[in-house]
């Protein structure tokens, strides 16, 4: 049997088709959303398109959706405010905890398994528990206390895992070398550790923003007055059945797209600067 080195086996073509099928399966609904958000003013939530317009975006921005159309810009602002606090806090807390795990210390397993527990517990359970605790203690739930706390239970475990990845690849000799050269603890962190792990730290920031922005099971009982974006959209699902939902989908995807591309570009430029500095 002649066997050419470069000839792909049959399995390659079968699996390529499976990959293509998965991508179609993932993209088909999304593409429908993006297209239908440009539905004409008289069109509905299904095809065919009744003309093309930006009508539903205008409805979204003017807040003139009529009945069932809540406060989308307001909830977007609230979500962003929450995400900003949660991501900065997650970054600081996770980096600090990650540094602790470079040594073994009593209680390391306790905190690690708490993080795993926090990650695998049903969100509704955690959200309920926090609300109940605040309730029994007579504290008012509020976005900046119970709200941020609830979201941290979701973002921090991922932050810690990212730190494990980052510091697992961090050669301890860098720090020993810095010690050898006379750097004190804060100099070691600022001048050696942080610059080397910075891409991972940005990774924690991005993952925290997206998880905060998407989270609703833990958040909804704890955020206090005013909806966050996912809660608002969920409300709209039952209240409204116009393509304005699709307009929200397109807009939020765009926001995410810009944000994530920005973060990736930032990390990429850091990596490039590290890889190619010109000769003197």
């Amino acid at each position: 049997m002649a066997h050419q080195a470069n000839q792909r086996p049959l399995s390659f073509y079968l699996l390529s088709s499976l990959m293509a099928a998965l991508l179609v399966f993932l993209y088909a609904p999304m593409v429908c959303v993006y297209i239908l958000s440009f539905q004409g003013p008289d069109g509905g939530m299904s095809f065919p398109m009744v003309g093309w317009s930006t009508h539903w975006f205008e409805v979204l921005f003017r807040g003139t959706g009529g009945q069932g159309m809540g406060d989308v810009p307001g909830s977007f602002r609230r979500s962003m405010r929450l995400a900003a606090f949660v991501s900065v806090l997650s970054m600081v807390i996770a980096v600090s905890a990650g540094m602790a795990y470079r040594r073994s210390f009593p209680g390391a397993n306790f905190v690690f398994y708490s993080a795993i527990t926090s990650m695998v517990l049903p969100g509704i359970f955690v959200g309920f528990g926090i609300a109940l605790t605040f309730n029994l203690l007579g504290w008012q739930i509020n976005w900046f206390s119970s709200g941020i706390g609830a979201q941290l239970t979701w973002s921090l475990p991922f932050g810690l895992l990212i730190m494990f990845i980052v510091l697992g690849r961090f050669n301890p000799a860098y720090e020993e070398a810095a010690t050898d050269l006379g750097a004190n603890a804060s100099q070691r962190f600022r001048m050696v550790i942080l610059p080397i792990i910075l891409p991972g730290v940005i990774g924690i920031f991005v993952s925290s923003i997206t998880s905060s922005y998407e989270e609703s099971a833990r958040t909804q009982l704890n955020v206090g007055l005013g909806n966050t974006m996912p809660m608002e959209v969920t409300g709209l699902l039952t209240g409204s059945s116009t393509p304005v939902l699709f307009a929200i989908g397109t807009m939020t995807t765009l926001v995410m797209f810009v944000f994530i591309l920005g973060a990736v570009a930032l990390m990429g430029s850091m990596a490039r600067r590290r890889a190619a500095r010109p000769d003197s």
Binding site: S96, A115, G129, I130, L132
Partner: peptide
């Protein structure tokens, strides 16, 4: 030092996960 560094994270998990778990 490790305890100090891990304390904020431990606080979040204890107050926001473990205590609520007991209360539930």
């Amino acid at each position: 030092a490790s305890w100090l560094q891990v304390a904020p994270m431990a606080t979040v998990f204890v107050t926001m996960v473990l205590v609520p778990l007991c209360i539930i």
